[in-house]
Nucleic acid binder design. Structure first.
Length: 437
RNA sequence: GGAGAGGUCGCAUAGUGGUCUAGUGCGUCUGACUUGAAAUCAGAUGUGUCGCAAGGCACCCAGGGUUCGAAUCCCUGCCUCUCCGCCA
């Protein structure tokens, strides 16, 4: 969400941003409808004021006058109802358009159509050289009895999977390492709810429009309580989060924070659910793209200062990079181009770990700065010198379970089919190497 | 799952149809008194929105309804608390 006055003042900038982000939104219509909206509010308020005065008249009126005053009141009531109905239509169109308006990306964001035009801005580690053909995590997982995709599909359906044996302690170790790293860096740990109302998701930008749309949004809606026994829609809709970010941000919604409290740094461990509605044909094998996984997420609320936010984003990415290095996973860092950015993002980077079995890099983390776009929707403000401002919100993956597991299995595989356990995880797995059974 | 009680401007409370532009106490801020503090006294003290401004309008959990007029009456939902039942 942007400020309507800001959009008006920077119309060309916003238009260019929408074009570069491949977002279709009629901004001229937005400006037009905003003017209509304001005019309508003015008219309604005059009538409401009349209604109030008419009510006051009634109290002083004689018995004879009352009838006329009541008539007049009914008249005003009708006028207000008519205008309010019209206003609602206008307001709906206004809200729909506003929900689509993108953040203007940072100046250093590369302009591009899609992910092919993301720009590599850093890398670490040597890709391992094998004197044999490296196996995929699917083959390794099966041989070492760590991963069961058949049973996963049988029980959970398409993209279902079981982790077993050392994969369990290994993945839990990864999560705990990430949480402890975050704590050591001053991030407060949370285990947030994963089943949430609609506002945390809308507020964080996970609905492409104003309302949830199961056809395009990658979010699961929980259906069981949508309708009561009579078929009436009664209960509030609930959704499964795709990351801890919405729950963590919504924790601070409707708050006015003190400047001294900022930046607020938190991290969340959660199960993450993704419908993958838009990627039916993609990554159909293995556990690269799955409907549920675990993740440690970092979230920061910082003052509305681009320099400060830039610093913090670097710190956040730095922590993720460090975690990759701790695990010995070669990676590269990409700056995300306009076309690969969602509407709300101001500046974003991805980390991609090298996955030798798949023979490509795979995204293992994504760091985003939304500036004040999410804060406007979630109403997260802070007070500075008596003035209230919307905060800047940033988030980043610390580490996620499934893809980190892929990278570890595929990078640490040995000629004999075994997989070495990264040093920092040995204490969790209880061994240095996972052997064939 | 059953029964009951509730949700009011930071906190606590008052308010059952118009005089509510929501009273009072506490807290907070400013000032006076004081060497300083406490105490006391005086004043101020919610949010959003429209407007250049004067000012208007909205908000008493949320959404509907009744009424000339709703914090107040009615309906629905959400949430909290108490008791019972069930349960990891």
């Amino acid at each position: 969400m942007l400020d309507i006055n800001l959009i008006k003042e920077n119309l060309d900038l916003v238009k260019t941003a929408a074009k570069n982000k491949n977002i279709s939104v009629d901004l001229d219509r937005l400006i037009e409808i905003d003017a209509e909206r304001k005019k309508m509010i003015g008219k309604i308020e005059v009538l409401r004021s009349e209604r109030k005065k008419n009510g006051e008249k009634m109290q002083k009126a004689t018995e004879k006058e009352r009838k006329n005053i009541a008539e007049e009141g009914k008249n005003i009531k009708k006028k207000i109802a008519d205008l309010e109905a019209k206003y609602e239509t206008i307001k709906n169109e206004f809200d729909e358009l506003m929900a689509k308006v993108p953040t203007v990306p940072s100046e250093d964001t590369p302009i591009g159509k899609d992910s092919d035009q993301n720009v590599e801005v850093g890398s670490w580690g040597e890709k391992p050289v094998f004197d044999f053909k490296p196996l995929t995590h699917i083959e390794l997982g099966e041989k070492l009895d760590l991963l069961d995709l058949q049973k996963g599909a049988k029980v959970a359906g398409y993209r279902g999977y079981y982790l077993k044996n050392e994969a369990v302690t290994l993945v839990m170790g990864v999560m705990l390492e990430a949480i402890n790293k975050m704590i050591n860096r001053g991030y407060r740990p949370f285990i947030p709810p994963t089943l949430v109302k609609s506002f945390p998701l809308f507020g964080s930008g996970y609905f492409k429009d104003q309302e949830y749309n199961s056809e395009i949004d990658e979010i699961y809606q929980i259906a069981s309580r949508d309708k009561d026994s009579t078929g009436e829609i009664s209960k509030e809709k609930k959704f499964l989060v795709g990351t801890a970010e919405p729950s963590l941000l919504a924790y601070f919604s409707d708050e006015v924070l003190k400047t001294e409290e900022l930046p607020i740094k938190v991290c969340g461990f959660s199960q993450c659910y993704r419908s993958e509605i838009g990627s039916y044909g993609k990554d159909t094998k293995g556990i690269y793209r799955v409907h549920e996984f675990m993740k440690v997420e970092q979230v920061v609320i910082c003052p509305a200062d681009h320099e400060k936010a830039k610093e913090i984003q670097e710190e956040m990415v730095g922590i993720s990079e460090e975690l990759h290095r701790d695990l010995g996973l070669p990676y590269r860092k990409l700056q995300i181009c306009t076309g690969d950015m969602s509407a709300g993002k101001y500046r974003a980077f991805d980390l991609e770990a090298w996955m030798p079995g798949l023979n490509r890099y795979g995204e293992t983390g994504s760091a985003s700065n939304f500036a004040d776009w999410q804060a406007r929707r979630l109403n997260i403000k802070y007070i500075e010198n008596g003035e209230k401002k919307y905060a800047f919100l940033l988030n980043n993956t610390a580490l996620a379970s499934a893809r980190t597991l892929i990278a570890i299995l595929e990078n640490y595989q040995q000629k004999d089919g075994s997989v070495k356990v990264p040093k920092i995880l040995q204490k969790y797995v209880g061994k240095e190497r996972i052997d064939l059974r």
